[in-house]
Write a protein that binds this DNA or RNA. Structure first.
Lengths: 224, 224
DNA sequence: GTCTATAACGGGATAGAC
DNA sequence: GTCTATCCCGTTATAGAC
């Protein structure tokens, strides 16, 4: 078997198992068994177990961000400014598409959630380096579209888009007896995109909060 | 040392370590070292490592839900129906309060995020049994307040509240060099509550999505 | 490049004294 | 109830044959 094939098979197996069971709970033995190789191959190709994780994450994230940027390019190539819904759709649909990929998608949503809650900056730094470009450009695009929202408040609104999309995808998987969705998951998947768009568009468009920002408050207090 | 004291000390240590490092990555040896006891004590009081996790989670969640229910009782004891903002505040403030508890709070946000993304229904079932009551009553209260939103769509809106609150708390902790918030965390903490309220209130209040629900669509297709 | 075999280690659980 | 000492297992990583 060629080197590239072995590497890909290891990544496939690792992605599935990490997503399903978590990184710590997954042994290299399980990965190599599923990949049809052996322990030594992982260490040869990736160096160690911990080095396998960034490789898996990058392989997932890179195409998503590429697609996000492509869609943004298309939007910005036009003359007229985009609608908020268009911008949201361009940002979220590559993520949703990923999650709706047959049987690969669903488990990935959980992997994302795990990454977001992971301790230590290591994982977040890793994720950032892949996602940074797309995030910056979209944030700027939202800022142009919503000039009346102060940048600090808009920053938080923008960062809530991902969690909402990811958490809803996870909710879609929950079985009804542990508090899953009220209607069949297949039917919901279609409606869910539209409902999520409604939810996020309204939230992004909300008038700026009137209350004085805390930064100002504390500056005033400091001078008192 | 009394039995209760030992038990509490183990729970304290486990809570901190699970939240900081994750469940799998935390060894019982680390827990007992911090608790000032030994391995056998954990197995005596809790039976096993896996049985320690539910105990830790329950100790965190129970008071939060109690407070949520108290606040809802106060609101419903009045004659006039609550505003959406009041209801949101009552639901979210016990969570936010938890996260703002000195040095205990911040790590707990990550523990929550991890739980939400955890595979297997085990953890989610455990969480549900603690949280179920409060969730049901609040969902009903929101439904009364927003009768024009179809229940299925409202269900998803309501389930997004938690993820938004939790993810923002995690964002508050991120250091600026990994994409943390633009302004100092201390100043933001105050403003953040108000901004989050603006965001969520607008999202909850959004007019119902016009598009036909997928359930209807697929029923029509099935009859074609 | 790939594999087998093994080294070196740390984990959870438990028996049994106190 | 609490502790020490120990068992036994699964883990990662690597040396060395092919």
């Amino acid at each position: 078997m060629s080197a590239d094939q072995t590497k890909e098979r290891i990544l496939d197996a690792a992605e599935r198992l990490f997503a399903e069971q978590g990184f710590d709970a997954t042994s290299l033995r399980a990965v190599t068994a599923e990949a049809g190789t052996n322990l030594a191959a992982v260490n040869y190709h990736f160096g160690s177990k911990s080095a396998l994780l960034p490789a898996v994450v990058a392989r997932i994230l890179v195409p998503v961000c590429q697609r996000q940027l492509e869609l943004l390019d298309e939007i910005e190539a036009r003359d007229l400014p985009p609608t908020l819904e268009e911008l949201l759709e361009a940002f979220t649909s590559p993520i949703t598409d990923l999650f709706e990929q047959g049987r690969r998608g669903p488990v990935l949503a959980r992997m994302f959630a795990r990454i977001m809650g992971d301790p230590g900056d290591e994982m977040q730094r890793m994720t950032m380096s892949e996602v940074g470009d797309a995030e910056e450009r979209y944030e700027a695009a939202f800022a142009r579209l919503l000039p009346e929202i102060p940048p600090a408040e808009l920053w938080w609104r923008f960062r809530s888009i991902g969690p909402v999309v990811v958490s809803r995808q996870i909710g879609l998987q929950a079985s009804p007896d542990v508090g899953g969705p009220p209607t069949p998951a297949e039917a919901d998947a279609v409606a869910l995109r539209a409902w999520t768009m409604t939810f996020l568009a309204a939230a992004m468009r909300a008038p700026a909060t009137v209350q004085a920002p805390a930064a100002v408050t504390s500056a005033v207090l400091a001078n008192a």
